[in-house]
Amino acid sequence: MGAPGLRGLCQTPGSPGGIAVNMSDTQWPRFMVFQQMEAGQAFVHQGTVHAPDIELALLNGRDVFVRRPNANAMFVVPADLILSKTEEEIKSGWEPGNPETGGEAQAYLVFGKLNHAMQSEQLGDVQAVSPQDAMKKALQKFTDRVVHMWWVFPAGAVLASGDKDLDSMFKPVLEHGFKNQANYPVITMMRQIKSKGKLED
């Protein structure tokens, strides 16, 4: 059995850049969930889960989003660690304030919303010393597409599923025969029962 870390419910996640949890807030912190459908494809934003820490956020992400459709990999990141800028903010002259201040350069993942009807997807990554710096570098690097909303966050703050998780987290769902609601014409069935006292064969 994988020994879980013995963390209390409200402690700071151990990952780099982990967020402090407000003990007076009864709501758990939010984590963003990103999913890769097939090996080699870009990771796509799936949604949000609440969790007491990042390990349970990954499990919650799987339970909420992977039942269907299929997935090859998943990662979660504390929502508070995402720096987000919209196309409008950038156009109206957003400038990073002191982007060079920060620690050592580290990798930041860059996500962009390319279409209003679609979720953000991964564009790539940049090396930067701060979130502001990462945003600035992302704007300089990914110029070939119109991005409606930009997200950057430290790659080191992410908790991702590994290859060994494929069998237990993502494969079983492929073998489940999900019931299609179209096969359950409940209203028609109820009409038959009411008019004839039973279902027709």
Binding site: G8, L9, E55, L59, R62, D63, D167, S168, P172
Partner: peptide, 28 residues
């Protein structure tokens, strides 16, 4: 073998929760 893939995941879920509840707060 088929069932085990799912049970490994169940166990990961419950094994994560048991110490968090045991050590979480006085009430838990």
């Amino acid at each position: 073998a088929k069932i085990r893939n799912e049970e490994v995941y169940h166990l990961r879920h419950t094994a994560a929760w048991v110490p968090r509840l045991g050590l979480g707060t006085q009430e838990s």
